[in-house]
Design a protein around this nucleic acid. Structure first.
Lengths: 252, 252
DNA sequence: ACCTGAACACCGTTCAAGT
DNA sequence: ACCTGAACACCGTTCAAGT
């Protein structure tokens, strides 16, 4: 017959933007921040550098896409199982619970993908109103309305909460140099040692220069990141609620 | 005579770690984030790369030193003129005023040195308990005690405030790619245009996917960074004060 | 259209060699 | 001790050439 054989379907796995992003995330997760280069990607995908640029544009765009993908997944996982009790919390119910759930969802995404902390921070400075901001604002904003904040202050209150997240997540990036992950026993031990060293150094500072630092060194040593993260959220929430006391009682 | 001529003093300006850090800051301020490389530094200082490594160890160490220097200066400037009225505020007096002054001091340091935002964020993720954290905690911690927070919560409340600063500062890094600085008229105009574009894009999002984002797009367009920064601090402060109502009255 | 891979400009860092 | 600058390994990106 004269029909031309279709050749497009012959490859066993077509290269695509999605597959590249996926491979990038895998690389970052398994080998750490410094491991994602065009060359390691081409090896992993057994292709040439030109192929990557054909699909993805630039290395920075690839990173943006990787961040966006992980954040989107983390937030989507929350909304599909909204009633599931978040670790350490009861079932979601009040707007405060929902906000806490979103925050902890992001926090846990960072512990799963330690490279996220630095990458989100950098991306936020480069593109303050990009997809990360957009997604997080939307997720926090919806329960924010239910908190009784008047519309003219939606932006201000949501910003405050989101900024707190970002800062806390940045400072809680675990695993100093990508050797091990966050929640494994080894990761925990490494982290405890790390904190102990830092607290010890603070303990030894000149009391005239750093009286406060010395006074809290022990609390640094013993604190739990996730718990402290939650405490901070509750503090900010209390500030918001105290500012708009009409609909909610302040004390609980 | 047989006395050997001293040759050590012959150079007109001896290279030193301090001079290198100073030159690095100048380079970052005038030419932007991407302009600081070993080669540009050697040109500016008319020396060889080996000389820099002899004094400074590594590029990352140099960046750390530059950050530390700028932050230290910003905080020191505050404590030498504590009674000077901070822009837009009355004279410092209450602990809240002092906390606001520190926060705005950092905020203004970032507008003066736009590269600070990204660099601080990255440094915080790499070294969460380094000198930046230490300095800022100490500056915030002292007035925190005066707020009436019990000692066992000093770390928690200070962390929360500092994390808010860090996040807000990261997101408020002005000048997308280092073309102009923050507070000049051109910078203002560029920034207004930038915000307008972002707000416009948010306006056009799918109302089903992003109802909240669409609702606040106008507030994004019209908000002032510094004012919003202050609003957020006041919100967090209110949360803290509301949690320890013994010593202070909540309302004002 | 999709992909290959050599080549390019640039980066941080090292180190034998000078004073 | 302090400095020079060529050399090294590595990076992101481009592009003529292939299918």
């Amino acid at each position: 017959m004269a029909t031309q054989p279709r050749q497009s379907q012959r490859r066993r796995q077509v290269l695509s933007r999605e597959r590249i992003v996926e491979a990038a995330i895998e690389l970052l997760d398994t080998a750490g921040e410094g491991a994602l280069t065009v060359r390691t990607l081409t090896e992993r995908l057994s292709t040439g550098s030109g192929a990557i640029y054909h699909h993805v544009g630039t290395m920075n765009e690839l990173l943006e896409a990787a961040i966006d993908s992980v954040i989107a997944d983390a937030l989507a996982a929350l909304s599909t199982e909204p009633a599931a009790p978040v670790r350490g919390l009861g079932a979601a119910g009040t707007p405060e619970d929902e906000i806490r759930a979103v925050a902890l969802g992001l926090f846990d995404a960072v512990t799963e993908h330690p490279w996220l902390a630095a990458q989100v921070a950098v991306q936020i400075t480069r593109n303050p109103w990009g997809s990360v901001t957009r997604r997080v604002f939307e997720s926090i904003g919806r329960p924010m309305r239910a908190l009784g904040v008047p519309q003219r202050d939606w932006f201000a209150t949501t910003s405050t909460l989101v900024h707190y997240f970002l800062g806390a997540i940045a400072q809680n990036a675990h695993t100093p140099h990508g050797t091990s992950d966050g929640r494994t026993p080894e990761g925990e031990a490494e982290r405890a040692e790390f904190l102990d060293t830092a607290a010890g150094a603070w303990q030894d500072l000149d009391p005239d220069d750093y009286p406060f630092i010395r006074a809290i060194a022990d609390q640094v040593r013993e604190h739990d990141d996730r718990e402290q993260f939650l405490t901070g959220i509750n503090l900010v929430l209390r500030g918001i609620i105290a500012s708009y006391p009409t609909r909610h009682e302040i004390a609980r």
